[in-house]
Nucleic acid binder design. Sequence first.
DNA 1: CATGAATGAGTCTTCATTCAT
DNA 2: GATGAATGAAGACTCATTCAT
Lengths: 208, 208, 208, 208
Amino acid sequence: MTTEQRVRQAALELFAARGFHGTGIRDLAVSAGLSSATLYHYMGTKEDLLVAIMRESLTRLNRAAARIAETEDAQDRLAKLVALHVMTHAVQQLETRVVDNEMRALSPQPRKEILKLRDEYEAFWQQAIENGCAQRRFHTNAPGVARLALLEMCGGISRWYSPDGPLSLDDIVLHYIDMALGMLHAQPEPGQRVVNEVAGLIAEIWPQ
Amino acid sequence: MTTEQRVRQAALELFAARGFHGTGIRDLAVSAGLSSATLYHYMGTKEDLLVAIMRESLTRLNRAAARIAETEDAQDRLAKLVALHVMTHAVQQLETRVVDNEMRALSPQPRKEILKLRDEYEAFWQQAIENGCAQRRFHTNAPGVARLALLEMCGGISRWYSPDGPLSLDDIVLHYIDMALGMLHAQPEPGQRVVNEVAGLIAEIWPQ
Amino acid sequence: MTTEQRVRQAALELFAARGFHGTGIRDLAVSAGLSSATLYHYMGTKEDLLVAIMRESLTRLNRAAARIAETEDAQDRLAKLVALHVMTHAVQQLETRVVDNEMRALSPQPRKEILKLRDEYEAFWQQAIENGCAQRRFHTNAPGVARLALLEMCGGISRWYSPDGPLSLDDIVLHYIDMALGMLHAQPEPGQRVVNEVAGLIAEIWPQ
Amino acid sequence: MTTEQRVRQAALELFAARGFHGTGIRDLAVSAGLSSATLYHYMGTKEDLLVAIMRESLTRLNRAAARIAETEDAQDRLAKLVALHVMTHAVQQLETRVVDNEMRALSPQPRKEILKLRDEYEAFWQQAIENGCAQRRFHTNAPGVARLALLEMCGGISRWYSPDGPLSLDDIVLHYIDMALGMLHAQPEPGQRVVNEVAGLIAEIWPQ
DNA sequence: CATGAATGAGTCTTCATTCAT
DNA sequence: GATGAATGAAGACTCATTCAT
């Protein structure tokens, strides 16, 4: 692991655990094993670090979502988005927590950029839901509310998931798919196939 | 409004908007219309302010949840919890955002107290779900996961609800009840009655 | 002397002696007898301090020059400007050194303001010179060059004048008037009357 | 241009524009097109750079002044000094600005050396003035004041001269000679001959 | 010859808090 | 009750300089 990566990792852990404003430059330095002056060889400002983390996380998410958007079957498509969201929020827990909680710490310009990425991502969900409604596979009077509810529900896992828990991640994802389809009054869906497929996609986009 | 309430209100707004660490004592003073020295006549430390906000919010929530826990019918009970959670997160938006986001800013001792209150509240949900499963009104293999998913889903509204939006709060709550019951594969439920009842309860516990 | 004035005085002395960039906040604090945190009760930023010093000095200078501009006789008028410039640069040595040397330390916005004040002042000189040329009392082919040369010559005194020197300030001023008129090939001028008059004006505008 | 010269040039430009304390090592590195570590192959400390610039400028000036000091005719001699001072301050603008403004940035030891050089230079002026007074070609009661005034007046050109201005440098120098002789109540002097002579001298001492 | 890495001391400024008045 | 004054510690960040490679 390069020093730059160690700095990034330290930022990731601390921003996730204490928040951007709760993390001092010295905390970062200690956590990366550097003096606080040396830190500045490997980063721009503290905010740059935050932006980089968010940008990368959202960019990858969007790349995956774009691939999923090609799925024809409406139920499959939503199930895949659920699997993607749940699995990344479980496994990329730190990144997603930072993305979800620290937006307000951004100054106007980077905030604009990051918000755009997030809106892009949410658009994939909105389209998937509306598409399913149009095909009469989903039933809801308020697709916008459903989108928000789904995203919150599926993203929440980043706050509690642990690989040491009693349920396997696959099982959890299957539950979430089940709940999500239930929320939209769609037909239940076996799901394991979807999970496998998305797991492959994730492995491709978040290598190693 | 007493000066103390003004201070509390200022803290509420700023902690919700910028986070605990993102809010300075001077910001509070300006927002409350006081000098920062005077502020200390009406509060203890900055953290005390945070604890007080969280404690009050969770205590009231628990009081309401305890009343709802008396409801016999399992579907009614869950629907009421959903209504309570959604409505408070919509209307007491600032308080709930602070409770949900700033826990990590607490130092160990107060954190323990607040976590206990939150666990208490979550227990009402866990019991309601398990009770419904036992009565075969809900169907899920992972009630714990369902609880977490439900809470995240219903609480997320604090991040986007505005009274000026296109949907009335009642409508939104009905949607959430519908989605929640769908998630648990329960029978759909008309719901408006439940909404009215919980609205009354809320009016009683959060007076005015 | 109020604390605020002590801070101002410290800034004046240090900026004059070491320059803006050569003066640290700690130097200011030590010199004012305060901790560097306390310093910030009495000032904005370090630059604010610089701007305030410059603004006041130039504003007063302009007020005095405006009064002198009413003088009808061309030679009198120029002699008075010389007396004003020399005397202030001798007695308000620190202020004028700061004004003359630290302009480049200003950031764009305040620089604009201060430059405007300085241009205003130089305009009084330009008019006085051109007026004398028009009346055929002064003889020069390049009034602009003369203005610049006069200002530099008369302002340079701030770099070496000391009240303990062998010549009285009045004598020095008389010499300067003599040299200035010589430069412009004007009739020599007794001058003491002018010096007295300007001394009165200065006492009025820089009270005490 | 060797790398060392590029470093020197960068220092010259930056010290002149922003002052010694306003110029960082990194600024120098960027301006010289080197990394800040490489910079140290071509220089000692930042202060060494400043001293070298000052020393060279003053040494050359003294060499030229020494040659001029051989001039017999008092008026010629002063006119040549004026021409030398004005022309170098116009053409070697950056060097002379640094010499005139950054003396205070020197630490005691180098300051002593540089001050000695400057005093040496001023002595040529003092002698020229006193010589002219003794010969009754100049008339002033305070030759010391006249020297200071002359030097400030003639040196000020470094703050505003540009080869793109409306007047040729020769014309400006002629004006300055005229003003200088006027200040000393000497006979006017045609001057162009003097200018040409000094221009030759300068070309010899500041080659290229 | 060149530089990435490193740093202790420094930069200006703000922090939460106390206290005498 | 209210506040101006005060501060040690900390905030993010830059400084001039060294050195191993």
